[in-house]
Design a binder for these strands. Structure first.
Lengths: 197, 197
DNA sequence: ATCAAAACGGATGCTGCCTCCGTACGCATT
DNA sequence: AATGCGTACGGAGGCAGCATCCGTTTTGAT
């Protein structure tokens, strides 16, 4: 009636119900079997037909993006804590760790993530979140550069890639020691004059 | 007849013929469509049935390993050249580059490679080649450490992982500039006191 | 020329993807 | 309480790829 604000029919109840059921089931399956898990199995276990799954989430990536969206709340929570830190170098380090854990939540996640990060695919539902993360990383980098802890040549994108890499390697089943050595190597790469052995 | 050297029937001609046809076709398909390419399509284009393919190469990885074996000749050729270099730091750098290019020959190759590298799967046909490469990398690392160009804390395995990572990122379609920045970051990570920006 | 071993190859069963359309459900209206 | 309409459901079905099995063909040896 009033200007432009069309009076819509109230959305059906089963829509929201199915959507959340799908998201929960999908998250469980992604956790257990990686991002390549069978969507048919997800649908069946959520108690819906394949058609319903595909209507809610037209592609695997759409489903993945939706699941990640709920998961990202945890990330922003950590971000709040990190922003409290006085030392920008420490903040950067913890932020990288937080991203890495976020990326390695599901095995195989880094691949679609990288595919989305290279943009040029505005329809990819993961593109926006990716660029948000890169920008956030760049902020931490710049803050740490101002205090002289990080080389000026480093960009947020570089460390985003590095975090993705570590997450990818973790997903391939590498042992924790190798991962720690690699993290150290990367840290030596972005930190200024860190001359110890 | 003579001691123990059992006189075997001469192997059939079509075996070798089919094997090489499969390898050539497989390499082409791996190059064009990545390691996930359809094996049925490979068999068809090689002019054999699926059964023949699977008899020659029981798993996708076996086929992949065989193709990589022929490709590795190129790598050892480069290795000979690298061993001529006087500067161990330069040798290490070039060796890493050579590995990286070897790993990124087919899109998706780094994943099965990493799966094989974590050993514990002696039946995986890629395991042995992987460990050979890690050992070779360690040699270059140690040589460069003797001249003080590389941090003592670095191990061959670390740089093997790093090379895999870069190859993986390359395979996801990253632009060349990002790759170069990442390589630089890693180099800053393993080199001793490289204090410039 | 014949034989037996060895290799072939395609038919087959299976799993997963994704679409399409008849059906059922839920909200609004009476 | 009953009716009607639009929305959402869900499963059947077509397709592609994997991996196996077994009747048939090829090949080397005699």
């Amino acid at each position: 009636m009033s200007a432009g604000e069309q009076r819509e029919r109230k959305p059906r109840a089963d829509v929201q119900r199915n959507r959340t059921a799908l998201l929960e089931t999908a998250q469980r399956h992604f956790l257990q079997h990686g991002v390549g898990t069978s969507l048919e199995a997800v649908a069946k276990e959520a108690g819906v037909g394949p058609g319903t799954l595909y209507r809610h989430f037209p592609t695997r990536e759409a489903l993945l993006a939706a699941v990640l969206h709920t998961r990202s709340e945890e990330l922003v929570a950590r971000q709040a804590g990190i922003d409290q830190l006085a030392d920008p170098a420490q903040a950067l380090e913890q932020w990288l760790r937080a991203m890495e854990e976020y990326f390695s939540a599901f095995s195989g996640l880094p691949d679609p993530l990288m595919a989305a990060a290279r943009a040029q695919e505005p329809d990819n539902p993961l593109t926006i979140p990716c660029h948000t993360l890169i920008t956030a990383t760049d902020q931490y980098v710049q803050a740490a550069q101002l205090t002289g802890h990080v080389r000026d040549s480093v960009r947020g994108n570089d460390l985003f890639l590095a975090a993705c890499s570590v997450a990818w390697i973790k997903g391939t089943g590498a042992d924790e020691e190798s991962l720690d050595r690699l993290r150290t190597l990367i840290a030596s790469g972005y930190r200024r004059q860190d001359t110890q052995a």
